[in-house]
Design a binder for these strands. Structure first.
Lengths: 220, 220
DNA sequence: TGATGAATTCAACAGATGTTGAAAATTATC
DNA sequence: GATAATTTTCAACATCTGTTGAATTCATCA
């Protein structure tokens, strides 16, 4: 007796439509009717499956968070395993960023929408704090621990601040605002994610080194 | 005959209230009635002074943009003047960031609200591009030119990408999400802007160096 | 087939939204 | 101090908002 239960088909269409629209316009910029229209579904179905609007938003936000967390945790564990428990700074930062790049590069447009949504939430002062904290901070704390262990003499405050700058650089890349395309007059393409992450990692690693390893120097 | 015209008092109250509420909740998260209530003004007055809602938003956004641009340009010119036309990387980055810190630290809460609003716009994919481009990119381009001149052998693409990471780190700091406070369990305070900028500058400078000056090295 | 429960649609609600035109109040001009 | 212009309020509009309960369709299984 296979207890295979096919997922309610329309509820997934709702989640996908909501994901894209919330990513583009934020929570208040999207109406339930617009989501319903995009999903080719009646409005009442949204309440039936997900309850009130905020619950729908949370359902969208949580759907891929666990997958992302697991991928990042695995990357961190692999970095530790492959280095005898002493991963380098590059390895830690790469384990944090490369899984995101991986999901952005899968053909699935849903992942790009979702990550843009994460960027929106992370930049949103009112909405953001609680959702980001509950969904991602447990994992982030594990990376912070790895960073502290890698740089045991670093002032912990500097580790947190450096992480904040890393988080900001990443967030703007996820947001897909297209600004670098215009600023550079087409020379750089925000959609060129290989370049983005290939450069983001050494940029961030150099910043960590400067703040956390050369903290007692007073260089020019 | 002094042609002194005192600014319409209530229109400024509207701008201030709108500034704060838009910064907190974004464009769609704020209703005209809420702004009117906060400004202790009738709703119709918003349309009388600023036209439709989007025009009010633009008026809020543009009000302080020129002041900010002028301060940053002056800082860049001073850095050039004080260095015989060859400002260092630190000087360029500082000229870009320190004026913002300055405005955040004036007692005026309005500036903090405004800069949080800039962060919101910069992270907003639909809204952001046009407004940021028109308001800030002309000035940003001058900084990019200074950076290219400082590092003439650097691949221009890398300069733009490094700027993108700088912009992201700055944006998250402006957004005032309070996330670093919770992540660090109170060890770091996002409101501690001196520390934020004292660390952001060397972090970013180290990243620029790595990407634009050591671009041909293949170090671990 | 017919009964049961889940999924989906229909129709509608009470309230909120952006916007507007006319009236009232305030300020400036002569 | 009367007149004109500007500013502010009042009252209301059509439309849209999130949400709900009843009706309908669909799938499951005895």
């Amino acid at each position: 007796m296979p207890d295979y239960t096919p997922p309610a088909p329309k509820s997934e269409r709702i989640l996908n439509a909501a994901e894209e629209l919330f990513a583009l316009h934020g929570f208040d910029g999207v109406t339930l009717r617009r989501i319903a229209t995009a999903a080719e579904v009646d409005v009442a179905l949204l309440n039936y499956h997900f309850g009130v609007k905020k619950k729908l938003f949370e359902a969208v936000f949580l759907r891929r968070a666990e997958i992302l967390n697991e991928a990042r945790l695995n990357a961190l564990l692999e970095a530790k395993a492959g280095s005898g428990g002493q991963p380098s700074l590059e390895q830690i930062v790469s384990a944090f960023l490369r899984p995101i790049q991986h999901f952005q590069l899968t053909g699935d447009q849903g992942w790009r929408n979702y990550l843009a949504l994460v960027a929106w939430v992370n930049s949103s002062s009112v909405w953001g704090e609680e959702m980001m904290h509950k969904s991602f901070d447990p994992l982030v704390s594990r990376f912070i621990e790895a960073l502290k262990k890698n740089m045991p003499d670093a002032d912990p405050q500097r580790v947190y601040w450096a992480y904040q700058f890393l988080s900001g650089a990443l967030t703007l890349t996820l947001a897909q605002t297209g600004r670098i395309d215009r600023l550079s007059d087409g020379l750089c393409r925000e959609s060129n994610l290989e370049t983005a992450y290939d450069l983001m990692i050494p940029f961030v690693v150099a910043g960590f080194r400067k703040l956390c390893l050369e903290q007692f120097e007073s260089g020019t």
